[in-house]
Simulated scan of single mutants.
Amino acid sequence: MKQFLTSCLITLVTYFPAYGEWVNVQGSSFFGPETAQSTACLRAEAKAKRTALEQTTGERLLADDLMICNESSEQSNCTLNRLTWSLADGEIRSIKNRTSSLSEIAEGVRKCTVHLQADIATERGFHDASFDLGVTLNQSMFRPGEELTLSLAPSQPMYIQVFQWLPYEEDQPVLRIFPNRFEKDAHFKGAGTIPRSTHKESYALALAPPAHIQSTQRHWDEYLMIIATRQPLSLRSQYSLTELRTKLLEIPRSDSRIIKKGYTILGGSL
């Protein structure tokens, strides 16, 4: 009989230290009366951090895979979540001298600007182009109860773990959904799926509303991080976002590949 892992309730390598440099950056966010000033300034801070990483590493952090926010009353939270998750594997170790300022742009429109200095780790090495992973989801929008399936296309054998960030749950946990108690083998020698076809009768990754979601909310966003490594990597089943970011800083880029995905769950009256 198939058992369900309810997504919102889912109940090795050699490391080296990362060195860094301080960079001065700023980020801005426009907002209207429907958005809290604190949310707008957090969004501006996330943009500043993103700029710091892009300037230092030369990599663009926001891929199309994370462009899941729509024009709606929930867009502000979704945008902030998306920015936060885009930085989840970034090399920012700390910030200092953070200041924020507000300015009136037009009637009902203000702008929050955040200046800060970011400590960027710069000694993680470079990605190995031959160690790559393609990941696609079976859908980008789900109804509660529908099943999530990941299709994997590794360029060579690798060990894969999948974590899920639940920004609307209390404490915003990051939970490992693969490997799990039904499927313990993290090694993929070639293309495959999660769940594997040999395990689809055993369990499913069924999506469910967050425990604290409002019944009137029309949709909410959740995020996945797929971590691929050359060798087995021992990771906990649950982290805070800060803890996971710190752990990922220990993994050399040449021995890993990290893919981030976002999806939307529909709820309420559309």
Results as ranks from 00 to 15, higher is better:
L80P: 08
D171C: 05
N81C: 06
N180C: 07
E201P: 06
G145R: 00
A118I: 00
G32R: 07
T6R: 15
Q55H: 11
S269Q: 14
A153Q: 13
Y15T: 09
S100H: 06
T136A: 14
F4A: 12
L248A: 02
I259T: 12
I10P: 15
H199D: 10
A204N: 03
A153T: 12
D128M: 02
F126M: 15
Y203P: 11
G268P: 00
Q172F: 06
R196S: 11
I10L: 15
A46Q: 04
P195T: 00
L224S: 00
S240N: 09
T99V: 01
F163D: 14
N70M: 12
I92Y: 03
E250Q: 14
G134V: 13
L244G: 02
A48V: 02
K261H: 05
A18N: 12
Q161M: 05
L166N: 11
E104S: 07
D221C: 04
A40M: 13
A18R: 15
A129W: 10
Y203N: 12
R50A: 04
F182K: 10
G108K: 09
L66P: 01
A106D: 06
P173L: 11
T57G: 10
A36N: 12
E243R: 12
S94E: 08
G268L: 00
K47H: 13
L224C: 02
A208E: 06
T51G: 11
F142Y: 09
A129Q: 15
A63G: 15
L83I: 03
R230E: 03
D171I: 09
W220N: 09
S94T: 10
E201Q: 08
F126W: 07
T99Q: 07
N138R: 06
P144V: 04
P17D: 10
F142R: 02
T216I: 11
L248P: 02
I160W: 06
S29A: 10
L207T: 11
A88M: 07
L241C: 08
S240A: 08
T35G: 04
A63H: 10
L87S: 01
T14W: 09
C41R: 12
I10W: 14
Q161F: 01
Q156H: 00
D221F: 00
S237M: 09
E123Q: 08
I227N: 04
F126H: 13
G32C: 04
E169P: 05
Y223Q: 03
E250M: 11
Q172E: 13
D64N: 03
E201C: 04
M158C: 10
G27E: 08
E21R: 14
I68E: 05
G190I: 00
R196F: 03
G134Y: 10
Q164S: 02
T246N: 08
P144R: 05
S254H: 08
E222C: 07
L248R: 11
